[in-house]
Design a binder for these strands. Structure first.
Length: 287
DNA sequence: CCCACGACCTGTGGGC
DNA sequence: TGCCCACAGGTCGTGG
């Protein structure tokens, strides 16, 4: 599912259709996703105007003109599909992801301009909520959330403080959204590879130089992935139904048993399991 | 606080 | 072809 680059790609795809749009009707086709929809979900959105589309970590935020903000998390398999009769099909060729299965169409947003935006989520690990504006930072989902990895607050000094004294593996610490918001299993593996740091290293044992390097590689891998429209493994597709293509740039993720791509390294990518999730790394060039 | 593990839910791909 | 198991981009809760 979507990590920061995929969520940002989805946000950018939805923005031209939803930002500034008034919602003619919003329908939840079942009572819950991972959690129940908030009371009156459809009614509270119907008639509201979406002022903007923002992102925080892996969340999409849609502030409304009614003083509430719609919060959306895509979980593992959340996906939006836009049907906008006014929009011209984008030119050029791009690979289309497999069509979303209609039986997993859980929420339908219809705008007054006639666009229909449908949320699909096979596994239903995603969720939506409504909260009063201004209380986003107090919302349990956001309280204590770490800085944006592409923002100025995420730097070597910040990481020094966040990692200090932590004996937990650096990979697990980077996956903790309280430390930094938006990284997931793919990009943590790729950023550690680029920084030549073993995922198993205790976070508190990293050197200044390693932390500074990690800040750079986290940023670069996320920026490049956003540029590529995210990564498509199975379910992910952008709002136009197209696949991202950053998966072709993976250096370690999903490459167990294959040759390390570092020139002259000669190592073989290994798969390990940390906290129940696959870790990929080259034991030869990541220390 | 740390960590491993199971739970949530469905689909898919690989091995036999 | 069919079946079964392992695994999947995320988080949360529990128990040691």
């Amino acid at each position: 599912m979507p990590e920061l680059p995929e969520v940002e790609t989805v946000r950018r795809g939805l923005e031209p259709v939803l930002a500034g749009a008034r919602l003619a009707r919003v329908t939840a086709r079942r009572p819950d996703l991972r959690f129940p929809f908030p009371d009156g979900f459809g009614q509270r959105l119907t008639g509201a105007r979406i002022e903007a589309l923002r992102r925080r970590g892996k969340y999409i935020l849609a502030p409304l003109d009614r003083g509430e903000t719609l919060i959306i998390h895509l979980g593992m398999t959340g996906r939006f599909v836009i049907d906008d009769p006014r929009a011209r099909r984008p030119a050029g060729d791009f690979a289309l992801a497999a069509p979303a299965d209609p039986k997993h169409a859980h929420v339908v947003f219809e705008t007054e301009a006639g666009a229909v935006v449908t949320y699909f989520d096979a596994r239903r690990f995603g969720f939506m909520d409504l909260t009063a504006d201004g209380s986003i930072d107090a919302h349990p989902r956001f309280a204590g959330m770490g800085p944006e990895p592409l923002g100025a607050a995420f730097d070597a000094d910040y990481l020094a403080a966040a990692f200090a004294g932590r004996r937990q593996a650096v990979k697990a610490v980077l996956l903790d959204q309280h430390v930094v918001a938006g990284l997931g299993n793919i990009y943590v593996n790729e950023a550690l590879y680029r920084a030549r740091i073993s995922p198993l290293t205790a976070a508190g044992a990293l050197t200044n130089k390693q932390r500074a390097g990690l800040v750079m590689t986290v940023r670069s891998v996320l920026e490049e992935a956003i540029e590529a429209g995210g990564s498509t493994l199975r379910d992910y597709a952008n709002a136009e139904g197209a696949m991202g293509y950053f998966q072709h740039a993976f250096q370690v993720y999903g490459r167990a048993g294959e040759a390390c791509r570092t020139p002259k390294c000669g190592g073989v990518v290994e798969r390990a399991v940390q906290a129940g999730r696959s870790t990929f790394s080259c034991p030869r060039c990541q220390r």
